[in-house]
Design a protein around this nucleic acid. Structure first.
Length: 126
RNA sequence: GAAAGCAGGCGAGGUGAUCGCAAUCGAGGUGGGGUCUGGCCUUUGGCCCGAUCUUGGGCUCGGUUGAGGAAAGUCCGGGCUCCCCAAUGGCCAGGCUUGCUGGGUAACGCCCAGUGCGGGUGACCGUGAGGAGAGUGCCACAGAAACACACCGCCGAUGGCCGGCCCGGAGCGAUCCGGUCCGUGCACAGGCAAGGGUGCAAAGGUGCGGUAAGAGCGCACCAGCAGCAUUGAGAGAUGCUGGCUCGGUAAACCCCGGCUGGGAGCAAGGCCCAGGGACAACGGUUGGCCAACUUCCCCGUCCCGUUUCAAGUGUGCCGCUCGAGGCCGCCGGCAACGGCGGUCCCAGACAGAUGAUCGCCCCCGCUUCCCCCGGCACCACGGCUGCCCCGGCAGUCCAGGUGACGAGCGCGGCGGGAACAGAACCCGGCUUACGUCCUGCUUUCACCC
RNA sequence: CGGGAUGUAGCGCAGCUUGGUAGCGCACUUCGUUCGGGACGAAGGGGCCGCAGGUUCGAAUCCUGUCAUCCCGA
């Protein structure tokens, strides 16, 4: 299942800022980038949302797997995991999960376990 | 029954529910804005209440719709948009792996129908199929020679040489000169390309005649070429006649015919500004580097000042999905396809939507127990026969029980209902990937009637 | 979306233009040398040239299709 819109990241400026200034946490299969939310960078209609505690984007590049079907399945897997185990924060945070090459061949439980581990290391889990 | 060939179809089995996502429609409430009425405050004006209109990618509820036959590879052809050139038409140059014929199409290198050639026992399949009588190049090794040649070989008719008989002449004579004819003579000039050998390929093939030996030199048949006739819309097919015999390669250059404005591609191209921000030029400041320092030069980041310009970023909006569109029926055509009528609206995202779970029915696979069928093994009882009778033993028959095996259906249980693969401006093709899937036709072989 | 390059021995690469013998270095095997090893010297093995068709007498080379990998630009 997909994340609802108030928890998704949108806009190229948002992603550029996270890539340049976000705090990076590396795992074997994933990279988590973290940045305090800057609502000014969002497009105007999205700012009228009630302030959500977190937004997250999931990036699966073509280097992870050649077939688009496989990449879509991985992205849906991470989305469903975030719906079941949402990060808990006090201040609004932006997260960006990038999958590394090789994660397409790994077990699903390994990828999801590392995802939870990275969120816990970032201090976003009780 | 097996093997094979061809054509076509389908591609989350049907139905329902819950959660979640995207687009769209409707309703509700809410926020913003406009107008009007009334009230309040000190006038320009502001605030409040109510009504009405409008708007919003925010909220809630409900409805509808939601990936493919290849969406893929990006190999071709277009539509559409902008720039340059021309401004209609023709010619030249350039480009094009465009190249049998006829048709289809918006167009194509695609499709359909045929012709020739090649493959297969066959159904069928493949085909890049103009020109080597315009020129250039290449044809390794071998071979004499790969576009004009002769190694072995055959002949040596005609010339030449040698020898012999005869005739004529000169001379007293030996002898010399000339000539005709002859030779299992020589093989010098020369003739030949049949045979051997080489090679993918040797200059038409086979046979007979012919010749000194041979040769399309002549003849018959065959192959090729040219002409004519018939036939076909054409590629071609069939037949007749004629003289003649010419290597291959153009997916080597090239020649001929045909086609063709060039380039970029939806990140094309256009609109709009709220907020935010300050490109570039100039001056100053700070840091890094070559070697410790200085100067100069170079590069980068940030900040400040000032001036000029009006642009830059961003799916914020348009392009954006109604189209060479799908489905049904009739008609024309062998077919590709076309015409007419009716009917339907069927994804439009922009960090990028289709997923997860469950119920019932259906289908497939595996399996326990019960039932039934088949033969097999074992057990006990009974009947009959034989060993003279009871008994005992042997054989056989009927029914019963048990055991394992094979096959089937119902019930129950478990598992499965997939594979290849994810739209991003849109179409037409091609290619590639995929299924215990479905249907039809045909061929060959085996068996039975 | 557009453009380009490369697949040859275990590894890195020539050869392709102009078709005819598949080669070089390292690695491997054997022998020599040495007390032994390395280095050195000598000899040798290993390839359907990514795959499938075609042209040609003959294809790593020419043509077409296809698969895989890599790079560049907007």
């Amino acid at each position: 299942m997909a994340l609802p819109p108030q928890h998704r990241l949108r806009g190229h400026r948002v992603f550029d800022r996270i890539y340049r200034q976000g705090l990076r946490l590396h795992g074997d299969l994933l990279v988590l980038r973290l940045l305090a939310a800057e609502p000014a960078l969002l497009a105007e209609p999205l700012r009228r949302h009630p302030p959500s505690s977190w937004r997250c984007g999931v990036v699966v590049s073509a280097k992870v797997h050649k077939r688009a079907v496989r990449r879509n399945r991985l992205r849906r897997l991470i989305h469903a995991h975030l719906m079941l185990h949402p990060p808990s924060t006090t201040s609004p945070q932006w997260l960006l999960l990038s999958l590394k090459p090789g994660s397409a061949d790994a077990e699903e439980a390994l990828v999801l376990g590392e995802c939870s581990e990275l969120i816990r290391k970032a201090g976003l889990s009780e």
